[in-house]
Simulated scan of single mutants.
Amino acid sequence: MQWYLKVLKQYADFSGRARRTEFWMFVLFNVLISIVLALIDSLLGFGSFSGSGSSVAFSSGPLGAIYSLAVLVPSLAVGARRLHDIDRTGWWQLIALIPLIGAIVLIVFWASEGNRGPNQYGMDPKQDAAGGYPQGGYPQGGEPQQGYPQQGGYQQGGYQQGGYPQQGGYPQQGGYQQGGYPQQGGYQQQQYPQQPQA
């Protein structure tokens, strides 16, 4: 449901990229809602089913028609973003105007896996969802940003106090302390008496 609501929030957003999950979950909820509205229309006497031989046709009522118009723009927008994810322009949706073949080609495009990493249309939505690189690309200044562990690596200003990282690197005990020698597991920090000054 969150994917369906995400598409509605980006109602007329034709920029950026959309992963397969976002697109196909929106399609699934659209189909389910359309079926429910079609049943309501038929119960109210607005919709009608007609069959001839092995084919069945359904003419939607006002509820189905209103819903179809309401989701037309977000459907085109998420379709364009899905094409952006495979590094194609959203105008490829016009190929659906070619009978049968166009729809098949478009479905294949929508079902294709997106490009790994950023492309000309934006960042990889899978990396964004997994907490990867922040918007704008790689971290600036070599310091940890979102998606990188704060502990166990370099902190601002170089190494952490004590010379080595606290977690993921050398332990503090037995390593170098501020005084220059290890506190435990090595030489003890000794204070030498100061000579009186004359």
Score class of each variant (00 low, 15 high):
K6C: 04
Q188E: 06
Q173H: 01
G136E: 05
I107G: 06
Y181W: 08
M1K: 12
L100F: 15
L37R: 06
S34I: 04
L94D: 09
G53N: 13
G102V: 02
A103P: 00
Q93S: 12
G51L: 05
D13V: 07
P149E: 07
S15C: 12
Q151L: 05
L43K: 13
A77V: 12
P149Q: 08
A65R: 11
Y121R: 04
V27A: 12
D85R: 14
Y11H: 12
Q145M: 09
Q172K: 07
A130W: 07
Q155H: 10
G136M: 07
Q127P: 01
I104R: 01
S48T: 15
G136Y: 08
I35R: 00
I107M: 10
L32T: 07
G114V: 09
V56C: 07
G179C: 02
L37P: 07
G168A: 02
Q93N: 09
A12R: 14
Q160N: 04
Q135A: 15
Y164C: 01
Y176A: 01
R20C: 08
G174C: 02
H84W: 04
G64V: 02
Q167H: 08
Q189E: 02
Q197L: 12
G117K: 15
Q184N: 03
A57S: 13
Y148R: 09
L8V: 03
G186A: 11
N119M: 06
Q188R: 10
Q173Y: 01
S54D: 08
L44I: 15
R20G: 08
Y133H: 07
G185P: 03
G132S: 08
P149C: 02
F26T: 09
Y67S: 10
G162Y: 03
Q178F: 01
L69C: 08
I101N: 02
G162I: 00
G180F: 11
A38V: 07
A57L: 13
V73Q: 07
T21M: 11
Y192V: 02
P74R: 11
K6D: 15
Y4H: 11
A12V: 14
Q184D: 03
G122R: 06
Y133P: 06
V105M: 13
L5A: 04
W92G: 01
L63W: 13
V71I: 15
Y138I: 05
